[in-house]
């Protein structure tokens, strides 16, 4: 066992990379849940984003186009979910599961010719001056665009929910859809937009996984990242900045676990690989056992079907 091989600066840098996919998927799901829609299809949208981003990036040789394709793929899949739950009024839970099952199959189908292919490299965007700070500079300011974009997105969602009228409408629809409807807001339209945003973010997160984090395409490569993103939203109590903290904490655990595997600790690899899932469960239990908190933060109309009588 050799723990000294673990370098904190490298650890911090890879932590941010490891956290970005779930943070992106999480912030999308947060908006969707704030509007009252629990979309359990995050895993399916992520993996579809992962494969379509990968395929387009390989075909065009341009990772940026890959990311854009992933956004649209995630959004397209999310809109299927949106139409079935909002227009055809199906059960959210079951439809979300269908989305995940379908996404896993579809992605494996699309990704057939891409196993073992190397994607084009996504350029690093070193922030001038800041990246030159010893230790910290490399860890925090030497990443690619998507890492910074994900942090900006958190800030933007926070500002949107807190300061804008549209954000207030979105929250109203999520808290009490009947009241929002009575006030003349288009509940279904707002929710469809929120679902589409969730899909776009999940797609982007998936593409980050296949184009930067791994970077390879393998079947089922998201390995539960979408579900962890769902848990992250609960952990964050539907607050954007807490989501960021949660994602980085989780990223830290994943990276540490990988480092321990590499450092030859006397725990078998497969048991170490369980740890992210077990820690997520543990955190969920701690959060949900606090009765007053858990009930206060969840949007009031979460997971309820809206059907206007007239």
């Amino acid at each position: 066992m050799d723990l000294s091989s673990i370098n904190p600066a490298v650890l911090a840098a890879s932590l941010m990379v490891a956290a970005t996919p779930i943070m992106l998927a999480g912030i999308g799901e947060l908006i969707s849940e704030k509007s009252g829609v629990l979309n359990l299809g995050v895993e399916g949208m992520m993996i579809t984003g992962a494969v379509s981003g990968f395929a387009v990036a390989v075909m065009t040789g341009n990772p940026a186009l890959g990311f854009i394709a992933a956004v649209f793929a995630g959004m397209a899949l999310a809109l299927v979910f949106g139409v079935i739950t909002q227009v055809l009024l199906a059960n959210h839970v079951a439809t979300g599961l269908a989305l995940t099952l379908f996404g896993l199959g579809l992605s494996a189908l699309i990704g057939q010719g891409y196993v073992g292919v190397n994607p084009p490299r996504t350029a690093k965007l070193e922030i001038p001056l800041l990246a030159d700070i010893p230790v910290l500079g490399r860890a925090l300011f030497g990443h690619d665009l998507i890492v910074y974009l994900s942090i900006l997105l958190i800030a933007a969602v926070w500002a949107f929910l807190k300061f804008t009228r549209a954000g207030l409408i979105l929250r109203a629809v999520g808290e009490n859809h009947d009241a929002a409807h009575a006030l003349g807001y288009r509940v279904v339209r707002v929710r469809l937009m929120a679902i589409a945003f969730g899909g776009a973010c999940a797609g982007l997160g998936g593409a980050y996984l296949s184009l930067v984090r791994v970077p390879q395409w393998t079947e089922g490569m998201t390995a539960g990242a979408g579900w962890i993103a769902l848990a992250l939203v609960v952990f964050a109590a539907w607050r954007p900045w807490r989501l960021l903290v949660g994602a980085y904490l989780f990223g830290g655990i994943v990276v540490l676990q990988l480092n321990l595997q590499a450092a030859d600790v006397r725990i078998p690899v497969h048991y170490l690989a369980m740890s992210p899932y077990l820690i997520t469960i543990l955190v969920l239990v701690i959060i949900s056992s606090d009765r007053s908190r858990a009930a206060l933060n969840a949007p009031g109309s979460l997971n309820r079907t809206f059907h206007a009588a007239q």
Binding site: L101, F102, G105, L106, S107, A108, Q112
Partner: peptide
């Protein structure tokens, strides 16, 4: 994988 997509 086609059959999995089919089932979904």
């Amino acid at each position: 994988a086609a059959i999995q997509a089919f089932q979904g």
